[in-house]
């Protein structure tokens, strides 16, 4: 028996295995692999080209005035003439145009959005995950609608907020209107990621708490939510980083063309939003202001990437192995 087995093994090695070619390297699989590589590179090359091009365009304008100045439209030569009468060209000339009002406005928008979206989203997710019956018809309808809401275009939320603000008789272009639209926009994202975070807390923790005589409420509040905080913050930051780049709903709400710092309390003030201010600058007739728009795009990109980086850091730092 063992001789037979040995002979079979040697013939297998000689004849079948040492063919000198690989079935993984025939024409079909090479073409397919090439298509995969092309698809990958297409996306990356376009993105890199866009960023590099924008960065080169904006290169002359990476200075502190981008952050400290409002939009300034005086032609540099006129500004110099005005400066002769004793005024500072740095607060007049388009060379020193900045996005102060947009950056302040977007920060206010983000804070107001977060204040609305986080409690609503987390509370909804806690209800759905910890209290609602998983099999009920209601839960299933909510589930499907949440997925759909996450895919609704931002303009729709803008229209909704326009209607709401009009019904309340509020002024156009105030912070709260934009924040309502953006909060509605990211609410499904916050709910879905919070539910994921709650679901990842092992059921042994809940059972351990309940077995001690804790109520479901105590268990949720003292065990499950604290354990889910890293996941919740990650999802929330990712949602906010989507909201900060949104322009469409804010256009509908009449944002823009605000060239001063908003008055306290901010939520009722008319504010500018960073993406809108970049858009306005990019269509300005002066080359020097269009340059500042390119620099502004890079700043906005850095802000979004920084928020995403913070989300990733939180996720990695607090990642638990249960």
């Amino acid at each position: 028996m063992s001789n037979v087995a040995a002979r079979t093994a040697s013939s297998v090695t000689a004849v079948n295995l040492s063919t000198g070619k690989s079935k993984d390297k025939n024409l079909g699989s090479i073409v397919f692999l090439g298509a995969l590589w092309f698809s990958l590179f297409f996306g990356i090359v376009v993105l890199v080209a866009l960023i590099v091009d924008t960065a080169i365009d904006g290169a002359p304008r990476f200075d502190k005035y981008l952050f400290t100045n409002f939009t300034q439209t005086f032609d540099p030569t006129q500004a110099e003439r005005l400066a002769a009468s004793g005024r500072d060209p740095k607060v007049l000339s388009a060379e020193y145009s900045g996005f102060k009002s947009g950056i302040i406005g977007s920060i206010i928008l983000m804070l107001t959005t977060a204040v609305m979206a986080i409690p609503l989203g987390v509370a909804s997710a806690v209800y759905l995950e910890e209290f609602a019956s998983k099999t009920s018809r209601f839960s299933r309808i909510v589930e499907i609608n949440l997925q759909n809401l996450a895919a609704v275009p931002a303009v729709i939320y803008g229209m909704l907020s326009v209607g709401l603000m009009a019904a309340l008789g509020a002024q156009r272009g105030i912070a709260i209107g934009g924040a309502v639209a953006l909060a509605l926009l990211i609410l499904p994202v916050v709910i879905i990621t919070t539910r994921e975070a709650l679901r990842s807390v092992p059921s042994e923790i809940r059972q351990g708490s309940l077995a001690l005589g804790a109520t479901v409420w105590q268990t949720t509040w003292r065990q499950v939510l604290p354990a889910a905080v890293p996941g919740i913050s990650t999802g929330t930051i990712l949602g906010l980083s989507r909201a900060i780049g949104e322009a469409a709903p804010l256009v509908m709400l009449g944002f823009g063309a605000i060239n001063f710092a908003p008055a306290f309390p901010f939520i009722g003030s008319k504010i500018e939003a960073f993406p809108l201010e970049i858009y306005d600058a990019s269509s300005n007739s002066q080359e020097i202001i269009r340059e500042s728009a390119s620099a502004g795009i890079i700043v906005l990109l850095v802000m979004i990437l920084a928020m995403n980086a913070i989300a990733i850091i939180i996720r990695n730092k607090f990642q638990k192995s249960w």
Binding site: P202, E204, I205, G208, L210, L212, P226, W322
Partner: peptide, 15 residues
Amino acid sequence: REHIGMVFQKPNPFP
């Protein structure tokens, strides 16, 4: 459950 406590199969300390 306050009167009748329970210890589980897998140790499940709280985090």
